[in-house]
Simulated scan of single mutants.
Amino acid sequence: MTHPPAAELLFEVPPPPTPVERLLALADRYTQHNDLLDLVLADNAEPDPATHVTSAQQLTSETLYAIKAVDDQQLYESADLSDAMVRLRQLAYLSTASEAERPQLARELTALAPEAVLDSATRVAGEMRRRRWSNAAVPDASFSDAQHTALHEIARGHVVVTGSADRRYVHHRTARLLISTLRSLEAKDLIARKAKSAAPAYIGGPPQDRVHLTPAGVTALATVLALPPAATAGPSRGPAPRTRTAARGR
């Protein structure tokens, strides 16, 4: 029996991503795809009709691959799981259909994809947790409610940042986030900003910085997906004080 060289033993092979992690990565891919189209449409009223085709083809393949990863788990076909899989298949159809459309319509077909994928990932995570609780990853107990909310909003493709290095503002769709919350997650290497990768905040304005989950952030969110924020909070000696948040933070 032969053994690998000692040098090879120094490097651990990371485990393959879980189905939930694949779905969270897929949600981010849809966000990047939509951002690409937004920037193209902002720069050119009549963009190249094929500008998005390669990206759309990749999304279709990645969506089908994520569906297979969930199918391979052989989970019980609950209503939640069935709904999640139907929605993912619909996204695969929409991505395929968008290949033949002009960028303006193609953008509409994938507009809600990140949210749909996150919703599906949450349903899948809940089903996996219910059926395989003993084998589930231990949730990260260090997230505050604000951080928990921020990770979800980022996964939905809802968070961008604008401004200079010393004065930045958070823009979001629904939940209110503070720049300090994002900085705390950046310090943990759970999120990162991609400069000038999202649509301008106004016509003629500069591109904004999209906030994405890092691979570590994907793994962290996957462990708490389908759990309420209170279940992820660390130990407390008493009730948490009520705080106010603003749409913009410094």
Rank of each mutant, 00 (worst) to 15 (best):
H152E: 04
A199K: 12
P103L: 05
A201D: 14
T223W: 00
A141M: 08
G238F: 13
L37S: 09
A187W: 02
T214L: 08
R107M: 01
T63S: 05
A69R: 11
H152A: 13
Q147A: 13
L39E: 00
A136T: 13
G126W: 08
S197V: 05
A231Q: 13
A201R: 12
K196G: 14
P5A: 14
V124Q: 09
K68W: 09
I67Q: 15
A216C: 08
R242I: 12
P239N: 05
A111G: 06
L36C: 05
F143L: 15
H172W: 06
V170G: 04
V124N: 11
D83W: 08
I191G: 03
V159H: 06
A195T: 02
L185G: 01
S78T: 15
A247V: 10
R107E: 08
S164A: 10
M85C: 09
L151Y: 07
N34P: 04
R107A: 15
E108Q: 14
A150M: 02
L118Q: 11
V170S: 02
R176T: 01
V124T: 06
M1N: 08
R107D: 12
P49M: 04
E101S: 14
Q90F: 13
I154E: 01
P47A: 03
P200R: 00
E127N: 06
Y76K: 12
P139Y: 10
S82F: 12
A201W: 01
E127Q: 15
H172R: 14
D38W: 09
S164I: 03
A201P: 00
E108G: 04
